[in-house]
Computed example of a mutant assay.
Amino acid sequence: MQVKHLLLITTLVLTAACSSKKTEIDENLSETQLYQRAQTALDNGSYSLATDNLKALESRYPFGRFADQAQLELIYANYKNSEPAAARAAADRFIRLHPQHPNVDYAYYLRGLASFDQDRGLLARFLPLDMTKRDPGAARDSYNEFAQLTSRYPNSRYAPDAKQRMIYLRNLLAAYDIHVAHYYLKRGAYVAAANRGRYVVENFQESPAVGDGLAVMVEAYQRLGLNDLAATSLETLKLNYPDNPSLEDGEFVPREEDVSQRSWLARATLGLIESDAQEPPKQSQAARDIIRQYQDAQQDLPPELDNVLEEQKAEQPDEGGRSWFSYLTFGLFD
């Protein structure tokens, strides 16, 4: 175990030392040589080196014949180098400088893709994170950016893939709102929960979370004593989503315990601390479907992207039977 720890520390130190070393670009290189070096680095997967050469090319030959292409490929290099903020900034700059460029749709697409992958970073590859419970800021950004692409360039070669990702992102945002609604239910904020459930029903009509939104409305209205609204929502739920987890043999079963029935400790801490072990909540329809929806969104990317997401998926290690040390070191010493 001590040897492994020593190897881990050594690896981290060497990684930090390597990352701090800057690549020196020969000032005598011509525009063509810089571009060729960048292309070679891209082909070899050396995206940091490609970024350095593309930046040098753009700064030294801003009006050269490779200037526009260098700006476009800089977006791609930053994206592949797992630098989403830099990729989006490069895409924004290209769109601003070249709004009529024949390949500007590619910049829109990569900008959306960078936001799409932002939440699925290093930790998401090794830890079982529930994407529906995380901050949806990047997801909203990605949805809006893909929406710009599909509205401005409906015939773009990237539009079909963008639309598929928008479906996944829409479902992800809807599932996040369901989690927020149940947070309100658990803490007795029934009006807020009912409003959030109604928002999902009204704004995410084709999402699998609509059934969960109706279930939230039923539960919140029942707690508030609004029996007519609860009955109407329940009938709609039974008619359209008979397999919803909140329905057992056709009868509605609330997911959250009534606040008045909780212990004094649970009420005092707004449900953050429970005196008794609570039964794990049932999995919502949205949470059940979100993994499948993500898989549906993983369509083959255009050839120039080298099927990036499929490669990342293939690189993910098998999580079964891994030790705590394997998790701690991100699988470096498996």
Rank of each mutant, 00 (worst) to 15 (best):
V308E: 09
R125G: 07
K133M: 09
G188D: 03
Q71E: 15
S48Q: 14
A162P: 03
M131Y: 13
E202L: 07
G188P: 01
L122T: 06
K163N: 12
A70L: 04
D296S: 13
W264N: 11
L97F: 04
S59N: 10
E219N: 07
D161T: 08
F204R: 00
K313M: 08
K4H: 11
V13P: 00
A159K: 08
A175Q: 04
A107T: 05
E27Y: 07
R292S: 15
L149G: 06
A86Y: 03
R60L: 01
A41W: 02
G45D: 05
V191H: 03
Q316S: 05
T269Q: 08
D228A: 15
F330Y: 15
D296P: 00
K22Q: 14
R60A: 06
D289K: 14
D258H: 01
A215R: 04
P84L: 07
E310D: 14
F126W: 12
R152F: 05
F116G: 02
H98K: 12
D300Q: 11
R60G: 01
R198T: 13
P62F: 08
A70C: 05
D258M: 05
Q298F: 07
G121T: 00
L328K: 05
Y183M: 12
A162I: 09
E248H: 06
Y190S: 13
I178A: 06
S326P: 00
G225D: 11
G112I: 07
M131K: 12
V308D: 04
R165E: 13
A89T: 05
I167Y: 05
I25Y: 00
F146A: 05
A17H: 05
N53G: 08
K21M: 11
L7Q: 14
E73N: 09
E256P: 09
E58T: 05
N144F: 06
F325I: 12
R170Y: 07
E145D: 14
R88C: 11
Y79M: 14
E310H: 15
L127W: 10
F63N: 10
